[in-house]
Design a protein around this nucleic acid. Sequence first.
DNA 1: CTGAAAGCGCTAACAG
DNA 2: CTGTTAGCGCTTTCAG
Lengths: 336, 336
Amino acid sequence: MNPPTIKDVAKAANVSVATVSRVLHNLAGYSDRTRQKVMQAVEELGYQPNAIARGLVNKRTQTIGVLFPHVSSSFSSDILHGIEETAQEKGFSVIVCNTAEEGKRTMKYLQVLREKQVDGIVFTSEVLKDEYYQAIKEMRVPVILVNTMSQKHMIPYVKVDDRQAAYHATNYLIQKGHREIAMISGSLKDQIAGYPRLEGYRQALADNGIEYLESRVAIGGFQLERSREAMKKLLTEAPPFTAVFAASDEMAIGAMNYAFEQGIKIPDDLSIIGYDDLKFARMVYPPLTTIHQPLTMMGRLASEKLISLIEQSEMQVSSSIVSHQLVERQTVRSKP
Amino acid sequence: MNPPTIKDVAKAANVSVATVSRVLHNLAGYSDRTRQKVMQAVEELGYQPNAIARGLVNKRTQTIGVLFPHVSSSFSSDILHGIEETAQEKGFSVIVCNTAEEGKRTMKYLQVLREKQVDGIVFTSEVLKDEYYQAIKEMRVPVILVNTMSQKHMIPYVKVDDRQAAYHATNYLIQKGHREIAMISGSLKDQIAGYPRLEGYRQALADNGIEYLESRVAIGGFQLERSREAMKKLLTEAPPFTAVFAASDEMAIGAMNYAFEQGIKIPDDLSIIGYDDLKFARMVYPPLTTIHQPLTMMGRLASEKLISLIEQSEMQVSSSIVSHQLVERQTVRSKP
DNA sequence: CTGAAAGCGCTAACAG
DNA sequence: CTGTTAGCGCTTTCAG
């Protein structure tokens, strides 16, 4: 009636549970004959090991937890895809945790993950608060940061160099002949995607002898609506400009839409470059020139690192700055 | 050194583990005094219950598994979002499983989920093969289908009525004065998003006394590129038409892009309506008129149903056809 | 009100 | 080569 256990198999095969366990794990120490019997019993009963019981004794669950601020965003789901893919290859399952805005549920989730005895944690796209750090430390499991990092604690991370990528984007615009370049930025309090990207922009201007004008940067927030407003503000209040660097694709697209509505042609009248290279960057018209972040690959990398920490329990850190890429599509034109 | 167990708490509080368990579960049978002692010990030791051990005896893991053909798609991640949200509210964790194209990894994952003793399964956007059905049946856990269904087996599902939604879309175009309406369809072998939507389109034409022309439907596949080709084919080979119904937003956008490149203005020269209402439908320019599927809500609903099946073990089916919605944006215009 | 003890299904010594 | 046994951490009778 109940699902067969290792005991049932043992009984059916007329051996001890230890022997069954042995053949199931391909350990040494049994005759071929025994092996046959066991395998047959397994077959007949349709036996499947119980990972919970196994986990209890092994103190390993072959499960990792992944924390996201938003599960449903192209951004997060690309990362998740990468994580899940290599996790499953290495025999791990992944529990997704949507921490919601402001990490409201982060602590709660950390506790759940602890109770569920996950073997490791991937923490993405959010600032790792001290509180979180402590909680994870108490769990004694490895963590990997993705798309974020911690100055304070030595925790391995996987991310692109935002500052450098923003520099790259801005510099590209400059190479294309633009000198009046506006920026739509995220909140400067955002230590991940806000401040560093603005810094990259400023540095690129500086290195090219272009004056930085505060009036040319609009703080947009990462949602579509906010960036439309930002664009509007820029268009009406900022000194004239011929190109704009948006700190995310979504912002870039909001800006593009607003521009379209105003009869501004992209890239003829205005060049624009985004950041992220989400799937829809290729789908808008004209296709958006942008900074590509290899999100899926970053997820894979994080998964690999985490699992190697779990398996070898070599607690050494080894972060990766993965390289971004500038994808030229059709929203930037050379200024003659 | 090791994380404290219930035993440690018992010792520290000078009571038995049974008592600790009682107060932790708010069961009756202990003095207030005892309660205090236990709580204090829990506090001091920083005790957290071990869900694995608990799961072993309870035969419940408070975990559900969710199978997706693609984790990284706006579509799946919206559903996942809904599932995760209500799951966590009800005290369940979710393991994501990316079954990859063709469900290549479905069987393998089903086995993993069985070994991990999940309490239930959500199966999305794929045909439930007999093989899968058998495997799940052997697991003796409830399943909910999302965005798919099974004729053969009585399994509760949550989905919109594709045929009806497609009818709605087509009919809308007709109401707007269009009579030459093309369609970009998915594969007709696709029992979920392919065939039924074409049927809806045909029926709407029929009900309005419009002749169905096979030459006006192009099979596009759901990816961007394929739908560009489909649009191209339509534009060159099909009889003239003034509107097109695309079986997905992605297809609609591919078609739009191709049209733009050809200098066709949307909606002035050509109206277009999509299907899904993914996030980017709002982001393209002009914003896409489309059929909204309440994906997050469907995820929530599925989660709720599943968990109630798990908790009450009332194995009765109760499917939901959730209602779609036609979202009017700016890609369809009335034909005078 | 409280404790002892029997498992849940599995692994891993330890003895043969 | 194979079996016995002691747990893993927790819940839950069953006795006091």
